[in-house]
Simulated assay, not measured.
Amino acid sequence: MRLDAHQHFWKYNPKKHEWINDDMKVIQKNFLPDDLLPLLSEHQIDGCVAVQADESFHETAFLIDLADEYQEIKAVVGWADLASDDLDKDLDQFSSHSKLKGYREVLQSKPVEYMLRKEFIRGIEKIGKRGYAYDILIFHNQLEATLKFLKSSPEQAFVIDHLAKPNIKLGIWREWKKELALIAERDYVSCKISGMVTEANWKDWTKEDFQQYMEIALELFGPKRLMFGSDWPVCLVAGAYEQVFDLVERFTDTLSPTEKNQILGKNAADFYGIKE
């Protein structure tokens, strides 16, 4: 089964989606399953993982409703305030939805201390006990704090989104690799090959810009802990779906068929507990 392990849906609202600034006008509109499904079909992708883009319970409910309507949405990564004293009650309201497979917060916009709070770590333990995964959305300069955070929860299934957003635009990678390597030593952490084009020069990138970063990710995590994700529709500010998919597919052409299948779907299915 081929899977796009990372994409988003939204009904565009300028206030709710204020992070979509005027430099991103191309995505200042609605993006819903009927817009994505032809792209998945064109690239022989069987389904997708819908990941939160807004920090609200409404967002989680919205994605679950879409997943109930569209069988191609195989999993949902929703949002919850993990540090809340009411977390158990909040988790209970969605506990009957089998396609809800994980949670995420926009850690990249928060100070590094945020993820190290005891209340937040307590929340991670609670979702872990319920069988949920956790997506880590950070910038490369948050990797050191992320390692400390990961050490506190060795039983939890984690995945690093977007390769931890290295500075591809400037071609900076050495410090990123050094810190990501320490995280990759932990076998309960996976990584998504996603979100690369938006970390490059949006108007002037080449395929070669990404090769070294994908090679490093493969070196550190191996083919069993990497997942392809398009980051559609956010990727559209810098490249079309087919361009983003082509980057990873061409890269995996150098691997064995088994390893290629792992990165293009099997790993995501295993990580999120997705059945055929």
Rank of each mutant, 00 (worst) to 15 (best):
K11W: 05
K11D: 12
Y12V: 06
Y12F: 15
Y12P: 02
N13L: 03
P14E: 00
P14V: 01
P14H: 04
P14A: 02
K15W: 09
K15H: 08
K15M: 12
K15F: 08
K16S: 13
K16D: 10
H17L: 10
H17K: 11
E18P: 02
E18T: 07
W19M: 11
I20M: 07
I20D: 01
I20N: 02
N21D: 15
N21Y: 10
N21K: 11
N21T: 13
N21S: 13
D22F: 03
D22H: 11
D22L: 06
D23A: 15
D23R: 14
D23M: 10
D23E: 15
M24D: 08
M24T: 03
M24P: 05
M24S: 10
M24R: 13
K25P: 06
K25Y: 05
K25R: 14
K25W: 05
K25D: 07
V26Y: 07
V26T: 15
I27C: 10
I27Q: 11
I27E: 10
I27H: 11
I27W: 07
I27N: 10
Q28S: 08
Q28K: 14
Q28T: 06
Q28D: 11
K29E: 08
K29N: 12
K29P: 09
K29T: 14
K29A: 12
N30F: 09
N30P: 06
N30C: 13
N30G: 10
F31K: 05
F31D: 02
F31C: 07
L32A: 08
L32H: 10
L32Y: 11
P33E: 12
P33G: 02
D34W: 04
D34N: 11
D34Q: 13
D34M: 04
D35H: 14
D35E: 09
D35F: 04
D35K: 05
L36A: 02
L36S: 00
L36P: 00
L36Y: 03
L37I: 15
L37P: 00
L37H: 06
L37N: 01
P38W: 02
P38K: 07
P38V: 07
P38D: 03
P38N: 06
L39M: 05
L39F: 02
L39W: 01
L40R: 00
L40A: 04
L40Y: 02
L40N: 02
L40F: 07
L40I: 01
S41C: 08
S41F: 04
S41H: 08
S41M: 05
S41Y: 06
S41V: 14
S41A: 14
E42W: 01
E42F: 04
E42D: 13
E42Q: 15
E42I: 04
H43V: 05
H43S: 02
H43Q: 15
H43N: 15
H43K: 15
H43C: 05
Q44F: 11
Q44A: 14
I45Q: 04
I45N: 01
D46S: 15
D46M: 06
G47Q: 03
G47A: 09
G47L: 01
G47N: 06
G47E: 03
C48M: 07
C48H: 01
V49P: 00
V49N: 00
V49F: 02
V49E: 00
A50R: 03
A50Y: 00
A50V: 13
A50G: 15
V51D: 05
V51S: 01
V51W: 07
V51E: 12
Q52R: 14
Q52W: 11
Q52Y: 10
A53M: 14
A53F: 04
A53C: 14
